[in-house]
Computed example of a mutant assay.
Amino acid sequence: MRHHRIRIAASLAGITALATAGCATTSLDPATPAAAPSSAASNPQGGVTTGHRQRGVLTGHTEPATVTRVVDGDTIIAEAGGTQLRVRILGIDTPETVDPDQPTQCYGPEASQFAHQMLDGKTVTLRTDPVQDTADRYGRALRYVELDGTGDYSIAAARGGYAKPYVYHDNPVRKAGQIAAAAADARTAGRGLWGACPQ
């Protein structure tokens, strides 16, 4: 009987530990310690990997890709696994430059130039977001774009003042806190569109 009680106590302790781990929440605080980021290099077979945490934020599947064309500051064409994807970059909105129904917006050319400098011809990691659709109504793939040595393009564009945070239908991306913090820093410093354009 005593051994039986010990086994039950051990089992309950294990279940409690699993439940505690399963109930852990993610944080959008950019100061949260980072787990090792996922990248194409951590997936030697290529192809899609499962979700990982980045800076405390649970993010989605990854896929190595090559940027074949920059459309504007928040849209690219990338080749991934032999397929050409038109990618709408998650979490940001840059001033318009290519919409035939809209004039070129303030700081749009600069945002596009930044995207060209950062992304043209680069090998990148495309990452889905577990709380967003994988494609939008125009058929564009919805992805974060990450670069070795630089990190997330959306955060870099926001920090440089080339992009504003973007929330679709009141459903923020998992990296919304990091992007908002980067944009707030740019706004305080008057960088990019925050200093050049009427707000």
Results as ranks from 00 to 15, higher is better:
Leu193Met: 14
Thr49Arg: 14
Gly56Arg: 09
Asp185Trp: 14
His116Gln: 10
Gln84Leu: 15
Gln84Arg: 15
Thr188Gly: 15
Leu142Ala: 02
Ala19Gly: 12
Thr75Val: 13
Gly160Thr: 07
Ser112Leu: 11
Tyr162His: 15
Pro172Ala: 06
Gln45Lys: 12
Thr128Ile: 01
Gly177Asp: 05
Val131Leu: 07
Ala31His: 09
Ser27Arg: 03
Leu28Ala: 13
Arg86Ser: 07
Thr75Asp: 06
Pro198Ile: 06
Cys106Val: 07
Arg159Thr: 14
Leu90Gly: 01
Lys164Cys: 02
Thr128Val: 01
Ser112Phe: 01
Asp170Lys: 10
Ile89Pro: 01
Ala19His: 01
Val71Ile: 11
Phe114Pro: 05
Gly81Ala: 07
Ile89Asn: 00
His52Cys: 09
Pro165Thr: 08
Arg55Asp: 14
Arg86Lys: 14
His169Arg: 15
Lys175Tyr: 12
Trp194Thr: 01
Thr123Gly: 13
Val124Lys: 00
Gly47His: 04
Pro109Leu: 00
Thr68Gly: 02
Ala24Glu: 02
Pro130Ile: 11
Val48Cys: 12
Thr188Asn: 10
Glu96Phe: 02
Glu79Trp: 11
Asp129Arg: 02
Thr125Phe: 03
His116Met: 14
Gln102Gly: 03
Thr32Val: 07
Leu58Ile: 00
Thr66Lys: 12
Glu110Ile: 12
Gly51Glu: 08
Pro130Tyr: 01
Gln54Gly: 06
Thr128Lys: 03
Thr150His: 14
Asp99Glu: 03
Arg88Trp: 07
Gln117Ile: 14
Thr83Ser: 09
Leu126His: 01
Gly46Ala: 08
Arg53Ile: 05
Arg174Asn: 15
Val87Ile: 13
Gly14Pro: 11
Arg5Asp: 09
Ala141Asp: 13
